[in-house]
Amino acid sequence: MEQRNDFPSKYPVSYPVIGAGGDTGSWRMFRPEIDKDKCIKCLFCWIYCPDGVIDRDNLQINYDFCKGCGICAKECPRNAINMIREE
């Protein structure tokens, strides 16, 4: 199927880009921190994160966009993620 990117203005199309939603990290009340000693690298946090801010390879969290929802901490089977109140 033909795919165009040069849409005339009549088509209300938008493409995903990093940070399109703005500085969403500033919404955070609690920051998730991964305890590397407890972590077994099961990647549950990576797959459950609704914002895709956890890096799959080194499990670094991108705090610019993490909203602090806590789903990763809730799903972690080893309780390796602590939610720490932001100052």
Binding site: M1, Q3, P12, Y15, P16
Partner: peptide, 9 residues
């Protein structure tokens, strides 16, 4: 198009 994802309207 899944190969070039976009949101519409």
């Amino acid at each position: 198009n899944p190969a070039n994802p976009s949101a519409y309207a």
